[in-house]
């Protein structure tokens, strides 16, 4: 059984993350949010030189059997989450909330979506493709449903600060919270949202344009 314990641990993780960054977190949410915070534990390379963690390079495969790397997402802002197609509880809710964001930014080349399966053994490419199409996502132009070896996915999940854990007894072999991560073109996580909570996803919808504004100059020069 997935213990309450592991659930709380994930909650705790998030809570700690939130506590660690109170300064940047609260400032942005209240005021007109000039700039989104950088999330994750910073490293102080040298005094005055603080380095925030970035998503490391990755190679994934999407529902159209196309390789997805950071280059695929170059210059874009994207929303990442972790799910599996047979998840009995929170995933449909996550998918419908993500769909809300997707529909708002459909055909906007500045925004992408990456949904990682945490059950790659079951969620083969045809399964992912079927899931995406049933959700109304006809191809992987903008919303990638991706797979990779389990370890790759789980390591990435940690970088996106989405609490995902192996649990052999859980359906799909894993438990997870429904975090959505908002990522900037440099691979920095700039927002974390509970993907099963519509209010949290509303917050994401508020933050997205803020981040797009920030990267707009970059976008103009980003070669297509």
């Amino acid at each position: 059984m997935m213990s309450r314990f592991s659930f709380f641990r994930s909650l705790l993780g998030l809570a700690t993350a939130a506590l660690l960054l109170p300064a940047c977190q609260s400032a942005t949410n209240k005021q007109t949010a000039a700039r989104l915070p950088y999330l994750g534990e910073p490293e102080v390379a040298a005094p005055g030189d603080t380095v925030y963690p970035r998503i490391p390079s990755f190679t994934l495969l999407n529902q159209d059997s196309v390789t997805v790397t950071p280059a695929t997402l170059a210059g874009k802002v994207y929303v990442a989450d972790f799910f599996f197609t047979t998840c009995p509880s929170i995933c449909p809710k996550m998918s419908s909330e993500m769909l809300r964001v997707y529909e708002k930014y459909k055909n906007d080349p500045r925004v992408s979506f990456v949904s990682h399966t945490i059950d790659p053994e079951h969620d083969t490419l045809p399964v992912l493709r079927d899931y995406a199409q049933r959700l109304g996502v006809q191809n992987a132009q903008q919303w990638h449903f991706v797979t990779a070896p389990r370890d790759t996915i789980y390591n990435l999940a940690r970088k996106y600060m989405a609490a995902v854990q192996r649990d052999k007894t859980a359906p799909g072999g894993a438990v997870h919270n429904g975090a959505f991560a908002l990522v900037d073109p440099q691979g920095h996580v700039r927002g974390l949202y509970d993907g099963i909570n519509p209010q949290e996803v509303d917050r994401l919808l508020k933050d997205l344009p803020v981040l797009l504004d920030e990267v707009a100059p970059t976008k103009a020069t980003a070669a297509k």
Partner: peptide
């Protein structure tokens, strides 16, 4: 079923 405690709690 193992996801239930999570979701049950949340719910």
């Amino acid at each position: 079923m193992a996801l239930r405690p999570t979701s049950a709690l949340l719910r």
